[in-house]
Simulated assay, not measured.
Amino acid sequence: MEPSAPTATSSYPVAREPPPRPPPQTAQLGQGPAQPRWKSWALGAFLTVLLTGGFAWGVYRARHSPRNLAFVITTYYLLAVLYCCLAKLDVLRRDDPARRRVRLAVWAVSVALATTIAWRFADSMPYLGLKIAVWVITAVAVGLAFYHFFGRGADGAGTRPEVALHEVSPEQRV
Rank of each mutant, 00 (worst) to 15 (best):
S124G: 11
D90Y: 08
R63W: 09
T159V: 12
E162Y: 06
P97Y: 13
Y76D: 14
Y76P: 03
A164G: 14
A27C: 01
L165N: 09
P161T: 10
V72P: 05
P97F: 12
G153I: 02
K131Y: 02
D95M: 03
G44A: 14
R103E: 09
T26H: 13
A34L: 12
R16Y: 01
A80G: 14
T7E: 07
R21Q: 13
D123G: 15
G54V: 01
P161Y: 13
V140W: 11
H148S: 12
L50E: 07
V91Q: 15
H64Q: 06
V111C: 00
Y60Q: 05
S4Y: 04
P3W: 01
W107G: 05
L43A: 13
E17C: 00
P3T: 06
P161N: 15
A87H: 02
G151Y: 00
Q172L: 11
M1V: 11
G30W: 07
R152Q: 06
S110Y: 03
F149D: 05
V168R: 15
A141H: 04
A42I: 10
P6F: 06
A87D: 04
N68G: 02
Y60F: 08
V168H: 11
K131I: 07
A87S: 01
R94Q: 08
F71C: 08
L29Q: 04
V168K: 15
T138I: 02
V111H: 02
T52K: 02
A122H: 08
P23F: 06
H166A: 11
E2S: 11
V163E: 03
A108W: 04
P19W: 06
M1G: 14
P170F: 07
T138F: 02
G30H: 04
